[in-house]
Each structure stands twice: as C-alpha cells, then as structure tokens.
Amino acid sequence: MLLGMGPDGHVASSFPGHPICQENEKWVTFIKNSPKPPPERISFTFPVINSSLNIALVVAGAGKADIVQDALVDGSNSDKLPVQMVTPQGKLTWFSDKGAASKLHA
C-alpha cells in the first residue's frame, strides 16, 4: 500500500483526534467534516491499512519536519498521531526528502 502523510500527521483521511481513527470494524468509511478540503471523503480505515503486507509511506517537504520528528523520535504524545497508528502486518518503509527529515539526527 502507498500512503502519504499530511502536515498534521494524518494518513488516508484519518485526522488527529477524529473518530475515524478509532474505527476498528469497518474497512472503508466516510467522513463528512474533514478538517482539510474536501469536507466529504471516503477512506480506508486502520484495519485495512494495517492488514497490508507492505506499506510505503511517503513524506515530503520541510513543513512536515516537526511532525516527522514527533512521530519517529519524540513519540511521547499521550495521543498517538494517525501516522503512528500505521502498523502493517509486514514491513513499513518511510520515504522522505531532506526537508521532511531535516530534524532527524543520524
């Protein structure tokens, strides 16, 4: 599966704090009040995302550097970011440009 991550840590149409993140039975659902246009969307849920054998997660842009650091390094948020809920049955591979990875230390 190919996923992207938004500047708030959302994947698919699973936005931080939105009830869609807690859906654990339906594989596909809808959202009518998306915080990002368009307001009405259809989306995979985490049960189908995480049933994947392999996920490629693409993140680009310096504007996402803080959220990449939060997701991969800090991870101390009491509320998980949606991107942190991506836990496939197989392999998760992050693909990032220099801007998005700029706050990660080697």
Score class of each variant (00 low, 15 high):
1 M>S: 14
3 L>M: 12
4 G>M: 04
4 G>W: 02
4 G>H: 07
5 M>S: 06
6 G>V: 02
8 D>A: 09
12 A>C: 14
12 A>K: 03
13 S>I: 02
14 S>N: 12
15 F>E: 01
15 F>A: 02
15 F>K: 00
15 F>S: 00
16 P>M: 03
19 P>H: 00
20 I>N: 08
21 C>G: 02
21 C>E: 04
21 C>I: 02
23 E>R: 10
24 N>W: 02
24 N>S: 13
24 N>G: 08
25 E>Q: 11
25 E>A: 03
25 E>K: 08
25 E>C: 00
26 K>S: 13
26 K>A: 15
27 W>Y: 10
28 V>M: 04
30 F>R: 15
30 F>P: 00
31 I>Q: 09
31 I>D: 01
31 I>C: 08
31 I>A: 07
32 K>N: 15
32 K>R: 04
32 K>G: 13
33 N>S: 14
34 S>G: 12
34 S>K: 04
35 P>Y: 06
36 K>Q: 09
37 P>N: 06
41 R>I: 14
42 I>Q: 10
42 I>M: 13
43 S>F: 05
45 T>Q: 05
46 F>M: 11
46 F>N: 05
46 F>C: 11
48 V>R: 08
48 V>K: 09
50 N>D: 05
50 N>G: 11
55 I>T: 13
56 A>C: 05
57 L>M: 15
58 V>Q: 04
59 V>Q: 05
60 A>W: 03
60 A>D: 10
61 G>N: 04
61 G>Y: 03
62 A>K: 09
62 A>P: 04
63 G>V: 04
63 G>R: 10
64 K>W: 12
66 D>E: 14
69 Q>F: 14
70 D>N: 05
71 A>M: 12
75 G>Y: 00
75 G>M: 08
75 G>I: 00
76 S>A: 10
76 S>Q: 11
78 S>P: 00
79 D>G: 01
80 K>W: 03
81 L>Q: 05
83 V>I: 15
84 Q>W: 06
85 M>Y: 02
86 V>C: 10
87 T>G: 01
88 P>I: 13
88 P>N: 09
89 Q>R: 09
89 Q>W: 02
90 G>F: 08
91 K>N: 13
91 K>T: 15
91 K>W: 01
92 L>F: 11
93 T>Y: 07
94 W>I: 07
94 W>L: 14
95 F>T: 13
98 K>T: 09
98 K>I: 03
98 K>G: 04
98 K>A: 15
99 G>L: 06
99 G>M: 05
100 A>G: 03
101 A>V: 06
104 L>Q: 03
105 H>Q: 14
105 H>S: 15
106 A>R: 11
